[in-house]
Design a binder for these strands. Structure first.
Lengths: 125, 125
DNA sequence: CTGGATCCTTTATGATACTG
DNA sequence: CAGTATCATAAAGGATCCAG
């Protein structure tokens, strides 16, 4: 039995699922795997998300100690997001998701070009 | 570039994230990892979900070829859900989520008893 | 026991405009 | 550039009742 902020979990997998039970958080992590990024860059990477939702998700991830937020006092402002150590450790999870996605597409989808994301770089090491 | 039902994905990880972007599907998979189960048993395993939502999620997973639904013509009815081959292959994903959850709790949570879920059994092999 | 049907609430996300 | 604020919508989920 686990407790996090007075919330109870029967199993550690429930902890993970509870944190990443929305549409975007893991996608954000994915795009931070290879590099720290500015807000703008993340927004370009994940074009389908709105600015507001991205802001919300980044804040949630920061509160859960999964990403760092670093502010540079410049004009115009510069804010850089990066993975914390525990955030870095999500790489195996995303690596397996990446591999599973390929298998799923092989069986039930269609491949038109090559993988366009630089996944090899992201999940290496 | 991938296509699944006329939907376009830049990366295979996006396929996986798009399928499992809700609160319950991966939890259902988790509870099917060790065994086929009846509707009732799944509902007991995941007590927080309502009957309706469980029904919806099972249907979605079946449509995506991730679980099988087998109906036994008995009275009262008996329906058994199990993982398809591609569903089985989600085990590494959940295994990594399980491991990450433990690390996260070690850093930011509290362990009161032992793991109560039979995770060892689920993710072995 | 399984799960459809209906109605309702909550939460997530989006669109748009605005600011230091 | 990196947000905030506001308003609006859609989607997910819940409660309840009912039926084969």
């Amino acid at each position: 039995m686990y407790f996090i902020n007075n919330k109870e979990y029967k199993c550690s997998v429930a902890v993970t699922l509870d944190i990443f039970n929305d549409r975007w958080k893991l996608a954000v992590i994915w795009h931070l795997l290879d590099n720290s990024k500015r807000f703008k860059d993340l927004h370009e990477d994940i074009a389908e998300i709105t600015q507001k939702t991205l802001t919300v998700k980044l804040k949630e991830l920061e509160e859960k100690n999964i990403i760092n937020r670093e502010v540079f006092p410049e004009v115009p402002p510069k804010v850089v997001y990066s993975l914390t150590p525990i955030g870095e450790q999500l790489k195996p999870v995303l690596k397996e998701m990446y591999k599973w996605g390929i298998k799923y597409v092989e069986d039930y989808g269609e491949l038109t070009n090559d993988n366009l994301c630089d996944a090899e770089f992201k999940i290496s090491k």
